[in-house]
Design a protein around this nucleic acid. Structure first.
Lengths: 81, 81
DNA sequence: GTGTAGACTTGGGTCGACA
DNA sequence: CTGTCGACCCAAGTCTACA
């Protein structure tokens, strides 16, 4: 689940063509924290998700939906193994 | 924003007709913590949102969407004052 | 059944430095 | 530009108890 969030976050950031530094700066989070999020080392707070979504130009709900899908996909791949 | 989450959480719980105790039990969180969430004293982690959504029989994305709407509504009411 | 208080542990989030 | 380390602070989440 932390991993699902991590992947989606990185995908969104890369597809915007911005760096971790830039994302961190715009969302008011430390550069190293973004790094930790993208590696699934930390899991954000709801408020953090809202801030990140804002910078990533996506609604929080859409953001979560993608996490959900990535999560379920990971689960189904577990099952079929 | 914490307030928006609080309201939505309480609404969902009440509409299911279950107590804070029961919600806490089913989602594996302490009773008093649910109380704090519903009063906007604490803001949950993403994983917590997922667990709560599960017990509340709603998808995390829908859950967040409702929070979003409650949040924007609160903002617009600020504006028009 | 819920609010609140206080004390406690874990993990979110910061920050500087170096590869 | 990113990963990682280590130290730090504060908020998430627990738990007991009493109104």
């Amino acid at each position: 689940m932390q991993h699902a969030f991590a992947v989606v976050l990185k995908d969104l950031r890369v597809s915007l063509g911005i760096s971790q530094e830039e994302l961190g700066f715009k969302a008011n989070y430390h550069r190293t924290y973004i790094s930790q999020l993208e590696r699934g080392l930390k899991i954000p707070t709801l408020t953090t998700v809202f801030e990140l979504a804002h910078v990533l130009k996506i609604t929080p709900a859409e953001f979560i939906e993608r996490v959900q899908q990535a999560f379920e996909k990971a689960l189904s791949e577990e099952w079929t193994r």
